[in-house]
C-alpha cells in the first residue's frame, strides 16, 4: 500500500511574500514595466501571472501590465505517448512582437513544458526577450532551461509531487511502489 505524506513547504503568507519579491525583481530587471507582458502557462501559471500583475500595479502606481495565458498542449513532445488534453484556450491580448514576455508557471521541473511554451509563444510573434518566472523550482531538469525569477527552490525526489496554489505549496511524497513509473511525469 502506498502512503502519501503531504508536507507544507510554503504557507499562503509565504507564497504572497515570494510573489511580491518576484514582482519587484521583474520590474527591477527590466528597469520598469514598459513593453512588459506576463503570460501564464495553462493551467497552474495563470493565477500567478495575474497575481504578479496585481503586485506590480500596487507598487508601480497606475500601470496595467497586460496578462495573457498560453496552452502548450499542441507543442508538447509527448503527444504520441499519452493523451494530451488542452486546458483553456490560449489568450494573448496584445501583440508580443518587440515586447518582453515573462512566461509564468507554478512549478519548474523537467523544463519540457517551458520548451513547448517557447515554441508556442514564438508562433504569436517575435518578442524582444523572453524571461521565465516560477513559483517553485523543484529541480530535475532534462533540458538546458533555467528560470530568471524563482519564488522558492525546493529540492525534491523524482517520485514526489508538488502541489502549488494560493493556499500554499505542498510536497506530496509517495512510497516507492506507487512511485514506480511516475518518472515520465512532465
Amino acid at each position: 500500500m502506498a502512503v502519501d505524506r503531504r508536507a507544507e513547504v510554503l504557507s499562503a503568507t509565504d507564497v504572497g511574500r515570494a510573489l511580491t519579491r518576484v514582482a519587484h525583481e521583474i520590474v527591477e530587471r527590466n528597469s520598469g514595466v514598459a513593453g512588459l507582458v506576463l503570460v501564464g502557462m495553462q493551467r497552474g501559471g495563470v493565477w500567478i501571472a495575474e497575481e504578479l500583475a496585481r503586485c506590480i500595479s500596487r507598487f508601480e502606481g497606475q500601470v496595467e501590465v497586460p496578462v495573457g495565458s498560453i496552452d502548450v498542449s499542441m507543442y508538447r513532445d509527448d503527444i504520441a505517448l499519452r493523451p494530451v488534453v488542452p486546458a483553456a484556450v490560449t489568450d494573448i491580448p496584445v501583440d508580443i512582437t518587440g515586447n518582453t514576455v515573462v512566461l509564468v508557471d507554478d512549478v519548474l521541473y523537467t523544463g519540457r513544458t517551458v520548451r513547448a511554451a517557447l515554441d508556442a509563444l514564438l508562433d504569436h510573434g517575435r518578442p524582444r526577450a523572453v524571461q521565465l518566472a516560477v513559483l517553485v523550482d523543484r529541480g530535475h531538469r532534462e533540458l538546458p532551461i533555467r528560470p530568471d525569477f524563482v519564488g522558492k527552490n525546493i529540492p525534491t525526489h523524482l517520485s514526489d509531487e508538488v502541489d502549488a496554489s494560493m493556499t500554499g505549496v505542498f510536497v506530496v511524497s509517495t512510497s516507492i511502489e506507487k512511485a514506480a513509473g511516475k518518472r515520465a511525469a512532465s
Binding site: D78, P83, V84, Y109, R112, E161, V162, A164, K182, S186
Partner: peptide, 17 residues
C-alpha cells in the same frame, strides 16, 4: 484528427512540471 492521433497508451499525468 488530434483526438484519434494524439492518444497513446501511457496514462495522462496529473503532476506539475
Amino acid at each position: 484528427l488530434y483526438t484519434v492521433l494524439s492518444g497513446g497508451s501511457v496514462p495522462p499525468t496529473g503532476g506539475a512540471e
